Computed example of a mutant assay.
Amino acid sequence: MHWYEKLNQYFPIEEMKSREHMESLLEERSDIYHKDEGPKHILMYVELDNFIFIDYLLVSKNARGEGLGHKLLEKLKRKGKPIILEVEPINYEDSDSEKRLHFYKREGFKHANSIGYERRSLATKELNELEILYWAPNNESEEMIFEAMKKTYNLIHTYKDQHFYGESYQPVEEVLTFSRDPKNENLFENL
Rank of each mutant, 00 (worst) to 15 (best):
K6G: 07
Q9D: 13
E14F: 09
E14K: 05
K17V: 00
S24P: 02
L25K: 03
L25I: 01
E27Y: 08
E27V: 06
S30G: 01
I32K: 01
K35F: 12
M44A: 08
L48E: 14
F53N: 04
Y56D: 02
Y56H: 05
S60K: 12
N62I: 06
N62W: 06
N62Q: 09
A63K: 08
G67A: 03
H70T: 15
H70S: 13
K75I: 01
K75E: 15
K75A: 13
R78N: 00
K79D: 00
G80V: 13
K81M: 07
K81G: 10
P82D: 01
P82T: 01
L85M: 11
E86C: 09
V87A: 14
I90A: 01
N91D: 15
Y92C: 00
D96C: 03
D96A: 15
E98Q: 10
E107R: 05
K110C: 14
N113P: 03
N113Y: 13
I115C: 04
G116R: 01
G116M: 03
G116K: 02
Y117F: 11
S121Y: 03
A123Y: 09
N128V: 15
E131S: 11
I132A: 14
L133N: 13
A136E: 13
N138L: 03
N139T: 07
E142C: 12
F146V: 00
E147L: 04
K151S: 12
L155I: 12
I156N: 02
I156R: 00
I156T: 10
D161Q: 01
F164N: 07
Y165V: 04
G166R: 11
V175S: 01
V175G: 05
L176A: 01
R180V: 10
R180P: 07
N186I: 13
L187H: 08
F188Q: 00
E189Q: 06
